[in-house]
């Protein structure tokens, strides 16, 4: 009995003592996801809201991303300390002379895909020949172009904007989509999955791992501990989000409403579930967060071959996260 009381008292003492200096010693840092709040970034918002960053000794400010923000530029100019980027974007930015390093590869599999309506007579890759395909710009075109090359397809490419309306109105036959986003949007415009033909680049050996966490190289070298803590705390936030999806959805929808963007819970739930599929191997809710050297080499080679980059940093220079 005595020992229990002692424990309680000492625990109280410990909490009081450890909290007050902790607040003073929290390291400040800022983070910006590459797009507007949505379940694609649930883990970071959850880590923030659930005090996981604080637990890791971090005082994180989340800056809202979106179409009008330029994460890499802001990173370079020191407006933000951590951003999420696609692996391919990060490799290209290095080639352009911006020294940024990966501290975690969050999404392991590519969610990028092509979608066609079966009513357009498209059932297999070969059917895409001579069709109108809408593609997003920039690095979103690397995988599709590899795909067209692989199947020797001659297509008319139409630039694709943020919506899939052009595809829905039959302006194009095939559209680009993210599995966790546009694909579900199309389903929620009344299409049945069996009315659609899908082509996942991942299934055709064209895996470009997507979202990863990046920092400037010099920032990393200044305080690697801070960077690794941020990566670990973020992954813990993701784990919590996958284990408590409805709570995570409450959090993300709160941010979406604050940002005045349409918040559709069903859609966000779908997105969170798919992100989980893309981040984990399915056996547990814990994301690995590691970048595989194979994936890095494959993406680098593709970028070089397509002429988008000339020079690629060594794997260990590029990836500074947990191994």
């Amino acid at each position: 009995m005595k020992s229990k009381i002692f424990l309680c008292v000492s625990a109280l003492f410990f909490v009081t003592v450890s909290l007050s200096p902790a607040e003073t010693t929290l390291k400040k840092a800022s983070f910006m996801p590459q797009w507007l709040p949505q379940s694609q970034f649930a883990g970071y918002y959850v880590a923030y809201e659930k005090g996981i960053y604080k637990k890791y000794g971090l005082d994180i400010t989340i800056i809202q991303g979106g179409p009008d923000t330029r994460p890499v530029q802001m990173l370079e100019e020191g407006d933000v300390d951590f951003v999420t980027l696609w692996l391919s974007t990060a490799i290209r930015e290095n080639d352009r002379g911006r020294k940024i390093v990966s501290i975690a590869q969050v999404i392991q599999k590519s969610a990028l895909m092509l979608i066609a309506k079966k009513s357009s007579g498209i059932f297999k890759p070969g059917d895409i020949n001579d069709k109108k395909v809408s593609l997003w710009d920039d690095i979103f075109q690397i995988q599709p172009r590899e795909f067209f090359k692989k199947f020797r397809l001659d297509v008319t490419i139409v630039p694709q904007s943020y919506s899939v309306n052009l595809f829905l109105r039959d302006g194009v036959d095939v559209a680009s989509a993210m599995w966790y986003n546009e694909y579900h949007t199309i389903l929620n415009c009344g299409y049945e999955p069996d009315e659609l033909t899908t082509f996942f680049y991942y299934d055709y050996g064209l895996n470009f791992p997507e979202d990863g966490i990046y920092a400037r190289e010099d920032y990393f070298e200044e305080d690697p501990e801070l960077c690794r803590s941020f990566a670990e705390a973020s992954l813990e936030g993701w784990e919590y989000a996958f284990e408590h999806p409805e709570e995570a959805l409450d959090i993300i929808i709160k941010y979406m409403e604050a940002a005045h963007i349409p918040a559709n819970r069903v859609h966000q739930r779908w997105m969170l579930e798919r992100i989980k599929d893309l981040m984990t191997d399915g056996s547990s809710a814990k994301p690995s967060g590691k970048l595989s050297e194979n994936d890095y080499t494959y993406v680098s080679d593709c970028l070089k071959q397509s002429g988008l980059v000339d020079c690629v940093p060594g794997f260990s220079d590029f990836y500074r996260g947990a191994r």
């Binding site: 139409v158 630039p159 904007s161 309306n165 052009l166 109105r169 302006g171 194009v172």
Partner: peptide
């Protein structure tokens, strides 16, 4: 604006 729905959809259709 070339890539926005209000422009692209009537153009393509």
């Amino acid at each position: 604006y070339f890539y926005l729905d209000w422009y692209q959809i009537p153009k393509e259709l």
